[in-house]
Each structure stands twice: as C-alpha cells, then as structure tokens.
Design a protein around this nucleic acid. Structure first.
Lengths: 199, 199, 199, 199
DNA sequence: TCATAAACGAGACGGTACGTCCGGTCTTCTT
DNA sequence: AAGAAGACCGGACGTACCGTCTCGTTTATGA
C-alpha cells in the first residue's frame, strides 16, 4: 500500500529517485515509536529524528503523520492473519478469530493500533485509510462465510454482512473499551455462537 | 451529572455562586459546535467564544475540554434509549437496538459522537469517561438479558457478556466504519439472531 | 520606543495586562544573545528559551524578530551618545564623534549592530525602524551644526545635511567594511576637517 | 571576474566542457530577479528555475548563492564608473562622484544592491566579496586623490583614507537610509567641499 | 451597609507540535 | 564530465491550541 501508487509513467523519470532506504527508515522508526510508549503521541519531529531524516521527506511522500503510522501498521500486520480452510465453518471461524485476537492483543500491535486510532480520529484521511484496511480484513472473513454457504452450512436467509460485523464488532469493541479480554477461549466461543446462528 | 458533586461543605458558603446559565451556555455551545461541522476540532477558545464566557469558567467546572463535550453528549442522549420489558428476549432486544441505532444515526448525535471519539483518542481522561458512559449502556442491555435468563429463555452456558458485546460491537463497528447501515431492519435481524443464539 | 505606543484608550482595559517582566526578559535575552557570538543568527526559539517565555509572547507584541532586536539595541544605546555644547563647532563635533565611534566599537554594541543589520537586510520593517533610529542620531548632530551656524561659525552656503552625512557616512562605512579603524584620533581629525569645510 | 579562473589546464580536457551559456543564463536570471521586486528574497530554487538550469550547476561554479548575486551586480556595474583625469582634483572628484551616484541610483542597480546587501548581511562570504568590490572602487578614488597630491593640490597632513571614506560614506549612508537624494548637484557640492578640505 | 470572597469575561502567558520554506548536498539519467 | 531534474538533511519560521495565570467587575453572603 505505497502512498504513491505506481502510475505507469510514460515520461522517463528525471532527477533523483525516491530513496527507498529513507522510506523504510521512516516506517521502521514509526513502528518503534508506536510500539514504544503506552500510546504516546509520536510527533513528526520525533519521527524524523528517530529515522534520521528531514521532516520534509515525510511530508513529500505522505499526506499526514497518521498516514505514515497507518502504513507502518498495515505493512506489519498484513500477514499476521490467515484465511484458513478446514472444511467446517466453526473451525474456520475459530482459527480466524484466534489469529485476529492474538494479533490485536500483542503488546506492540495494541500500542500501535491505539496510537493510530488517535490519529484517525483527528485526520479524516487516516480514517479513510484505516477503513480501507478494515475492509480488507472484512473481505477475508466474508470469504470464509461464503465458502461455508457454498457447502450448505448456512441457512438461506443468513445476513452474511451482519455475521461478519458481529465478529469484528466484538473484536473492536473489546479492544477499544477493554472491559473484557480477547482470549482464544472467547474466540472459540464466539465462533461456535456465530456458526450456530448461521444454520 | 455535574462534574463537581456538591460535597456537603461545613463552612457556610460565601462569595458568588456558580452561574447555572453559564454552565448551560457552555453545554449548549458544545452541542452546537459538535453537531456543526463534519467533525471539526472544537477548540477551547471557540467553545468559550461561542458560549460567550471565559475559558477559565470551563476549566473551573470541568477537568478538560473533552469532559465538557462528553457531558454535552450524554446529557442529550440519556433519555433516548429505553430499557423495555415486553416479556420476551427477542422483542426486548429489538426495541433496545432500534432505539440505540436510531439515536446513533441521528445526524446531530452522529456528528457529536464522531467529534467526541476524536477527543477520546487523544485525551485518556475523555476515553475513560466515554468508557463509563458505554458501561452504563452495556448495563442496560445486560439487564434485559438477565431478565430473560431468569425467565428461562437462555441456555445454561450462554456467555452474557459476549452476547452483549456482539450487539454493541455491531453498533460501534458500523458507526465507525460506516460500511453498512444501522437501520431498524438490521436491529430486528440482529435481535432475532442473538435471541436464537442464546437458546 | 515601545512597539505598542500608548494609544490613550478610553475603554477600561479588560483581561490580563501585558507582563512587563516578560517584556524585559525578552529584551534582556536579546541583548545577551546579540552580544554573545560574533554575529550569530539569534533564532526566535533561542530567544524564547533564553528569556524563558513562549514564542507567541514575542509575536504578540513585536511584528518580527528583528523588531525585538532593534528595540533591544536602541533601548541600550539611547544614552550612550551625548549632544555636547562647548561653544565651538570643532570641539562639539569632536566630542560627539568620539562618543559615536566609541559606542560603535564597543564589542557588545558592535556585535549587536552587526546582527541587527543582518535582520534589517531581510526584514523591511526592521530596516524602517533602523532608519528611524538613525534619523534621531542625525538630528542630534544637526542640532550641533545649527547651533554653530547661529553663532556664525559656518559659511552662508554650507549644506548642513551633507556635512552631517559625511560624519555618519564615515562611521557607517568603516563600521560595515572594517577597512580602517574608528579611533578617537580619527574622530578628532574628522571633526577638524568638517569644521574647516563649514567655514 | 569568473569565480573559477581558467587555470591553463595541462591535462587534455575530457568530458563535457563548461557551458558558458548556462553561466550567462544564471547571471542574467540573477540580474532579472535582483532587479525585479522590491528586494524580494531570490531563493536558489527560483534562480535555477528562472535560468532553466539545475541547482547543482550553480553550486558547481559559485560557492554560495550570494556569490552569484554579487557577480551579477559587479559584472553589470564594472564599467559604469570611470576614473577621470581632468588635471584638477575638484573636477576629477565631481566626475567620479557623478558617475558613482548615477550608477547607484539607477533603479535596477539600486534594487540589486539592496537585495545583495540582504545577502551580505547573512552570508559572511558574500560580505567579504562585497568588501572586495568596495575596496576596488575605493582604490579608484584613492588614485584620483594621489594624483592630486603629486600635483601639489593637497595639504601635507591630509588623511587620504579619511577623505575617500567621506565620499563613499555619503554615498552608502544615503543609499541605505534614503533620507536624502544622490543627485549630480550633491556630487558637485561634495566634490567642492572635499577638494577645499584637502588644501 | 459594607467588607469579604468567590465567580465571571477577557485575554496574556509558557509550552508543544504543527506544516512550510529554504540552503546546500547528493543521486539519477541525458547529452 | 557537465548538465537538468529533483530528492535529501537540517534547521528556522510563524501559527494553533492547551491549560494556567492575572486583571477588573459583578454578585452574594456574613459581620
């Protein structure tokens, strides 16, 4: 998810090219700072200093600080959640949710998400990016449910979107308010409930 | 919900008393600003100017800007959600969720909530207050489910917390990401699903 | 020469008043920094830090950094040059120029002037203020010459302005280019030359 | 006065040779920008854009931005001041000063000088170059006075440096502060005064 | 009735972060 | 090798807010 999608340029590019090392340094610094304190602010200056680059290099490539943080998060989290296919809805859900809960409660990720939500709340652009990210994850879960439907595991009138949102809803709601844990145990119970409800 | 509960002072009060008009002016201004733009910042200065009062009057009675905003929201939203008792879990849930969804999608409330979440994300104190607020609402829903359990409408091993969080999860998740609506129709479907799952 | 001349306000001022201590702290810090290095930049941040005040307090009362520096200089230099009255043009000139040269070559003043000129060069507003300051000093010298004219010490067609500018010209030209010294010896020679030329 | 004098290279030149057109384009652009606004900043980027060349081409041949600006000025002004030899000090001075004043008050030159002084004030290197430039002009005037001395037109104890600095001092002082004009009339009066003073 | 004390509108204050601008250097591709 | 294009680091700029701190004024007691 690079912020400057590779518009297939016809013109042979002239001038110095974007420094990939700088880009990686910025993202790495963002990950370090996001994970470091308990949701500490992560200022642009601290980010630039940590990465050893100039502030302008950040603003040249990302529209806002939050966009950097989001990319730092998503590029990390992309491969931490699988889309299992065990042949049964409940076990697929259980596997998916266990992964999701685990990724969301790993201290680093949790700190990053918390800080990121703070950015999203004040920067609409980040909020959009975050929604995009969420949409992708939703798609993964939808795939699992669709497969089950094709296998005939779900009743006719099942509202797939609603089912998916119940799963993610529990995840986000507990993540945000923290009033109850996100253990594998909970993941399995939720998987059972949802699978039952879909029949 | 005055933030400074009237500690029963021994010493007979002297000096000018709190100006209730100022308090109301602040809350009204907060509601106006929260509802106005699409999640615009609502600075303390703008709040004071809008209310026609001095900044100190805000900080004299509330611990932070967010606390004002939260009180502005909750004092509005308090009575928009009922705790119905129809004698059947599904209809109780449906009534509760219809109210919840309706309150959450009313344009003013939605704008206020959005802006407030932005504050919560950066001000831990507001986040706590917001959690308190949420806890109250959760308690209402729990009450409904508990009543159903006493009537024998739920299975033995039902995880009441999880059930409640599915309901609120759908609400918050859709509210935040906006990828799907929060219609009464959805509320009824969700109520049916949850009631079925509880059996 | 306060930046906010005392407009005789009719309205009884409301709100906190300007903090004179802060104003003095800023000017003192400016003098310290101007005198410190050999014409080092004096950034606004360093000025604020040195004075222990917020940047905004500077920008609230002065239009630009240079305006602060100029006021710091002029409030110091105001009383270092006298307007002597010995009864003879040459000795008056000699006294005046000795003072002028001495004030201009004192290490602190020289450093301050140098740094200030750098500001004046890029900030037209400071240039104007500097011109005002210069105009005042010119006036002092003119007074001396006028007095001599009234005593009949000058020829009829003497161009007083030109005479004054020759004196200040030597001062500034040598100060800026530094190719020759500004000793009392030179001051006396110049005084003699000018007095002779005026006859 | 090219900054890189053509050292007679022994090594048979390899690679592309210096592009004289680029050099001229840079100087022309500098003159245009210097003369354009009322002392506007003239950034390196704007200079490169105006000249249609890359920034590096500037820094390959000049040590700093100000050096370019100075060369742009001096290469223009070089031949605008003559060193006349009429056989009499006063008329020589008058001719010299008329030229000097005229060159310094031509709108373009004035704008260029103003902008350049701004650079000199913040860039010591430019200040040095500017001093060099001034020294050359001073040398011209000294020559005039020395010739007069050889002809016996000056008194024994005349301080030639001081005389020269009176002339240039008037010029710079009036140029900088702008409080009085630099007309040919003034030039002639000044010439007469100085010639008288030297006897 | 008057002194005292608190609340108020106004707004200056110290401080932190922001996003922009510019100078001088470095890198890429073309000539 | 020189040039055009332009990304890079570093650092100052001027602005926006926050939460605190005076000011002078207003209002309610208790002496």
């Amino acid at each position: 998810m690079p912020p400057t999608p590779p518009v297939p340029e016809r013109r042979p590019h002239t001038g110095r090219r974007r420094n990939e090392a700088a880009r990686q340094a910025i993202l790495a610094a963002a990950r370090r700072l996001l994970a470091a304190g308990g949701g500490e602010p992560v200022t642009v200056d601290s980010l630039a200093r940590e990465a050893g680059i100039g502030k302008q290099t950040i603003y040249r490539w990302w529209p806002s600080k939050g966009a950097v943080l989001l990319e730092a998060l998503t590029s990390t989290a992309r491969d931490q959640v699988s889309t299992p296919d065990t042949g049964a809805l409940e076990s697929d859900l259980a596997a998916f949710l266990c992964d999701l809960f685990q990724a969301g409660t790993a201290p680093d990720n949790a700190a990053m998400l918390g800080t990121l939500l703070a950015e999203a709340a004040r920067d609409p652009q980040v909020a959009d990016l975050l929604r995009d990210f969420t949409r992708t994850r939703r798609g993964d879960l939808r795939t699992i449910v669709e497969r089950a439907r094709e296998r005939g595991e779900t009743a006719a009138g099942t509202d797939v979107d609603l089912l998916v949102d119940q799963a993610f809803g529990v995840y986000w709601f507990r993540f945000l308010s923290g009033h109850a844990p996100l253990t594998p145990e909970v993941a399995r119970t939720l998987a059972r409930t949802l699978a039952l409800g879909a029949r």
